[in-house]
Design a binder for these strands. Structure first.
Length: 209
DNA sequence: CGCCAGGGCCATA
DNA sequence: TATGGCCATGGC
């Protein structure tokens, strides 16, 4: 790996500053947000979370008992509402049965992946942002960033994640900030410019493509 | 009108 | 195991 991913992090942090991720009042709210944000803009997720909060349903024990029809109607602004309602109810049951909110307990990655609707990225986001576990979150933007850096990132989630894990110190705060910065960077710069010729990472980018 | 957003499941080969 | 279609709403 000829690119120093820690240095890329430092440049992004200097450029954009601290990103304040993940905006939530509880670990359960992080989990709900992680499900709602699947292939969905954060603005739509906020609308759905607001509806849950305003109806008093942003609570694991209540959602675990509520019908998927009612949950679906509440989270509708976030899209994919049938699937997401089912997934939220499932994870609400897991949270309420294991008292994860008390802080003395947390789910395993395997347990999260057993929930239908929770895949690798969602599981890692929950572990990292709700339970402070060092699980580096990889997403579409992460791949896009590496491509812009002139690399040819591997296809699989785990292979892509491994590139970051072996290049960075295993640190929860670093993992949290880095993922947030990658999203921020790609949403602003990588999207609007044809190459990295105008962005803060230009000296690290392959400008030939 | 089209495209995409802080993915994941499932059928098909 | 590896692609492709599908899910759904809202902003631009």
């Amino acid at each position: 790996m000829e690119i120093n991913l820690l240095k890329i992090y430092e440049i992004l942090l200097k450029e954009y500053g601290h990103q304040e991720w993940w905006p939530a009042d509880s670990s359960f709210e992080v989990a709900v947000g992680a499900i709602l944000t699947q292939n969905t803009s954060w603005a739509n997720v906020e609308a759905a979370i607001d509806r849950l909060r305003e109806s008093g349903m942003l609570d694991a024990r209540k959602l675990a008992e509520e019908s998927t029809e009612v949950i679906g109607a509440l989270v509708k602004p976030a899209g994919f509402w049938k699937a997401k309602a089912r997934t939220i109810k499932s994870i609400a049951r897991v949270f309420s049965e294991n008292s994860f909110e008390e802080g003395c307990n947390k789910p395993t990655r395997r347990a999260l992946l057993e929930i239908k609707g929770v895949g690798s990225e969602t599981a890692d986001a929950i572990l990292l942002y709700a339970f402070a576990e060092a699980a580096f979150v990889v997403d579409k933007y992460t791949r896009r960033l590496l491509i812009r850096l002139g690399l040819n990132p591997p296809e699989g989630y785990q292979a892509l994640q491994a590139i970051f894990v072996k290049s960075l110190p295993r640190d929860v705060e670093l993992y949290r900030e880095y993922h947030a910065l990658i999203v921020r960077h790609c949403k602003t710069v990588c999207k609007s410019t044809p190459a990295c010729s105008e962005c803060c990472l230009q000296s690290h980018c392959d400008l030939t493509k």
